[in-house]
């Protein structure tokens, strides 16, 4: 399902990161960083809520708008029952949707928001996502202080919050089109190799987007996938070539390989992951390049692994989904 938008623009954006993101190559471009994973709160979950609400605060401050002027808040995260988003939403008193698309939540939110704005149901809105390394480890894997060995394909959930303000008021970045993904099953069962799980969904969505829009890879200055990591990135390049005969070429990159310094920060293994990953990379470094006109058109392809520990223990394969949104610079 691909559709185009006429009057949806990205006006403001903000990113809040944790200590690992601060030490990464994008550290200087983040709007706010916490040097402590607890972010001065008592628990990991509260820290995630704080980082998420900080990012919404920053976007509101940039927009010089009161929260009462915002029509809708859409937010997603990884915690059980999307609780980080719900708890962060309270203080803003904005009509709220909590969404779950695993690590594809950011683009899922942008698609929903853009569709509502373009359908003239609302004038503006904020799309947020958050994730926290420690709260995710606690929920999906082992206690955080437990030093379980991980394979090289494991990825590292990024910490922080990221928000973007969309409206029908013209700015330098236009939301041009989007493709809604389908649930994909490739019989992958390894929760420590999410890149392999999600690459198939990314391939499917990129292919359908290009086909529906009658474009080629070269029509984009950058195709950025969500959080495939080092090995998932290789798998996607190979898969696109073999399955669809599409050469992703040098305009393709994966945000999971960009957020951290993979050589110096060895604990991140194959790269960054989490709903925050693609949001943080694109809001901190891709959107400014679109604003400056260095990029003309960018395709953000967020990828999510759809599973829960219960389903993995019941020996079910891990499904995946991927949503794509195309952003254009306005001269």
């Amino acid at each position: 399902m691909t559709f185009t938008y006429d009057d949806v623009y990205i006006n403001y954006y903000a990113t809040v990161g944790g200590p690992y993101e601060k030490d990464g190559p994008l550290g200087p471009s983040l709007d706010k960083v916490y040097t402590n994973l607890y972010a001065d709160e008592k628990t990991w979950e509260q820290a995630e809520v704080k980082m998420l609400s900080d990012s919404i605060d920053l976007v509101l401050r940039n927009s010089k708008k009161d929260s009462q002027d915002v029509d809708l808040l859409i937010s997603g995260d990884l915690l059980n029952q999307v609780t980080a988003s719900s708890y962060a939403a309270l203080k803003f008193n904005i009509p709220f949707f909590g969404i779950y698309g695993a690590c594809s939540s950011s683009v899922e939110g942008i698609i929903l928001m853009s569709s509502l704005i373009d359908g003239k149901k609302i004038k503006n809105g904020i799309v947020s996502v958050s994730s926290h390394n420690m709260s995710s480890e606690k929920q999906f894997r082992n206690p955080t202080e437990y030093g379980a060995p991980k394979p090289k394909t494991a990825t590292f959930t990024s910490t922080g919050g990221a928000s973007v303000f969309l409206s029908n008021q013209k700015s330098k970045i236009r939301v041009e089109s989007s493709t809604i993904g389908k649930v994909v099953d490739m019989d992958q069962t390894d929760p420590f190799n999410m890149g392999a799980v999600m690459a198939a969904a990314a391939g499917d969505t990129i292919y359908r987007h290009l086909k529906d829009m009658k474009r080629t890879v070269n029509d984009y200055d950058l195709i950025l996938t969500g959080d495939l990591g080092v090995y998932g990135r290789e798998i996607l390049i190979d898969y696109m070539h073999q399955e669809y005969n599409i050469d992703l070429g040098k305009n393709y990159d994966d945000s999971g390989t960009m957020l951290y310094n993979l050589e110096k920060q060895e604990e991140v293994m194959a790269g960054a992951s989490g709903p925050l990953c693609i949001a943080m990379v694109s809001y901190s470094s891709i959107l400014p390049l679109l604003e400056k006109g260095k990029f003309q058109r960018v395709l953000l392809v967020a990828t999510g692994a759809l599973f829960s520990p219960t389903f993995v223990y019941q020996h079910k394969p891990i499904y995946s989904i991927s949503h794509a949104v195309s952003l254009e610079a306005i001269k």
Binding site: P151, K152, T153, D187, N193
Partner: peptide, 13 residues
């Protein structure tokens, strides 16, 4: 799925 698995195995460190 089988051919996908082959690609995955090829990129397993």
């Amino acid at each position: 799925k089988i051919s996908y698995k082959k690609i995955v195995d090829r990129h397993k460190p």
